[in-house]
Amino acid sequence: MVLRFPSETVNEPITYTLIREHNVLINILNADISHGKEGQLLIEMAGREEDVNEAMVYLESRQVGISPVVKTILFNEAPCVHCGACVSVCFHGALEMDAQTRKLQFSPEKCVACELCIRACPLRLFELNFGVN
């Protein structure tokens, strides 16, 4: 999930409190926080159900926004050479060659973020992105 900290709470030891006082396990995957500004933290949280629920109540009391995460694939289209190596590993029709122009067509709405194209592209043009729903 993604936690969004308002600027007032950015300096509080919130993750510390979560771990110490609510007995949940926190795995920080990505952090975008700087002193005195609004910040974001991408985390995984695990623990007993009641602990997790209490942790959520605590976060809400500190005005921390909570959103579930969606994995999406980012495609850096400009350098693409339209070779098609990614097409044969995409089983959801998100990557297709236009039969006429032979240019790669990426349809993000069909992508299920299976990540197979990331390694298949010889130019490394796909990237996994953790976004907020």
């Binding site: 050479v81 339209h82 098609g84 190596a85 060659m97 032979r102």
Partner: peptide, 21 residues
Amino acid sequence: SGEIVLEGKKIKTASLSSLYK
């Protein structure tokens, strides 16, 4: 065409060289 049939199975094809280029 994007597909060949081998051993009774339809198989998705892809090129490694770019026809566009």
